[in-house]
């Protein structure tokens, strides 16, 4: 195992960089962070649309979110892989394909997190804001979202953990994220597949476990200092 790490450690961590494109664990992290960052505004928009009083907005968005959530991510990746070149006219790289698929997929899941976060505040906050004469948008911006986003933070970190795991599907379209790199290493070494894949699993574990513990800690801290005062 030691020799494996010595020989292939750097390749595992950063792929062929700097002699080639970024790969490995670094690419996994980069892709996840970028995907989640871009998915957030989409998720916010979709989530708020699902809560809109206008049916013309609510229904199509709900249908979209439901459809994406009922489809395997791999399906979305394939649609992006085969559909994007048809739509944009030129062949997009694996990174772009995976990014688009992840942003659409995570956007739909974030929409639900946003929806639950806002509905969890209860009607009273919106009523109080509207009773003061604030418009629906002003109420969202000044009262609802500041509270909802704070409550959603642990769920957002958990979604980040999910996104990291989702990047593994890049393997199937040949993106050099960490699972693909691991299989490349396995092909070269050939005689130690169990060790290579255990190493892969362990790397994911360390990353995701640390993040989910962090989310847990955030949730705990949120519970101990409640921001909402409850009347008797």
């Amino acid at each position: 195992m030691r020799e494996l790490i010595d020989t292939y450690g750097v390749y595992f961590l950063v792929g062929q960089y700097p002699n080639g494109p970024l790969g490995g664990l670094a690419l996994t992290l980069l892709l996840s962070a970028l995907a989640l960052l871009l998915a957030l505004p989409l998720g916010l928009a979709l989530g708020l649309a699902r809560l809109s009083p206008w049916r013309a907005l609510r229904w199509p968005v709900s249908a979209f979110v439901f459809t994406v959530r009922a489809t395997p991510l791999l399906m979305v990746v394939f649609w992006a892989y085969f559909g994007l070149p048809a739509l944009t006219g030129y062949k997009s790289g694996q990174f772009a394909t995976m990014l688009v698929a992840l942003v659409v997929f995570d956007g739909a899941y974030l929409a639900e997190i946003v929806r639950a976060g806002v509905q969890g505040l209860g009607r009273g906050q919106m009523e109080a804001a509207r009773a003061l004469g604030l418009s629906h948008l002003q109420a969202l911006r000044s009262v609802i979202l500041p509270q909802a986003l704070r409550h959603m933070l642990p769920s957002l970190v958990n979604q980040f953990v999910s996104t990291i795991k989702e990047t593994s599907l890049g393997y199937i379209i040949g993106l050099s994220e960490v699972s693909f790199i691991a299989s490349q290493i396995n092909t070269q070494v050939f005689t130690k597949p169990a060790q290579v894949y255990l190493w892969l699993g362990f790397s994911y574990f360390v990353l995701c476990f640390a993040l989910s513990r962090f989310a847990y800690w955030m949730q705990d801290r949120g519970q101990r200092r409640p921001a909402t005062a409850t009347p008797a």
Binding site: V161, I164, K165, E166, S168, L169, Y171, S179, A182, S183, N186, P193, A194, Q195, V196, Y197, L198, L200, G201, Y204, F205, L207, C208, F209, S212
Partner: peptide
């Protein structure tokens, strides 16, 4: 629970197909 959930399913599949039989 923690060991399984923090590793993507794809990595699990790769292990059980390529790795485990060799053991």
């Amino acid at each position: 629970v923690e060991a399984i959930r923090n590793v993507p399913l794809l990595a699990h599949m790769l292990f059980w197909y390529f790795g485990a039989p060799e053991l």
